[in-house]
Amino acid sequence: MICEKTKLALQTLFPKAAPTASDVTIDTDAREKDKKKKIEPRQNGLVERDYAIHGYHLDAQVAAGQIIEAVTILDEAEFFIEAITGVDWIKDNQLEVVYDFCRYDFDLCRVVIRTRLDRNAAEVPTITDIYAGANWHERETHEFFGIKFLGHPNLIPLLLPEDADFHPLLKDFKA
């Protein structure tokens, strides 16, 4: 129910490439996929996932500039923020920022917003103005991955020492 609504709302972010049925089938068949096949970096777009396998319903990959827009849509639909984190796709020379959202009511809908950034210039606008709770999550992602959150009020290390200048969750990090 709410999933459908959110899906429609999020689709407005991708005017030209509405998700095709093939997107869905390919992804739900992840198990049968040939493991040796090289995984291409995903293109921006909205994908509906099989909840039983992946544990979330909607997966939207947006451009960095669209983050605010996408998060505003979720905020209006009364989603709460679960977490923000990053993934280092070193082979593609990309960093991914992952935003997890869920809702408090029984109309279950988990939404994942993600954006791919260039590994050398990883910058994404902050969403602390929309979700105050994103503050710590963004600080954490910043210190672990070196991703800059533009406009963040206090982007200093949170869990690491305050003078830490390394980013331990990067794949090329050596202790």
Binding site: D27, A30, R31, K33, K35, I39, I53, H54, G55, Y56, E82, A83, D100, C102, R110, V112
Partner: peptide, 17 residues
Amino acid sequence: PVGDYYQAVETARGSFG
């Protein structure tokens, strides 16, 4: 297999994912 997976559980302290 390749992919990403999410699981939330209710621990004593709340929703752990």
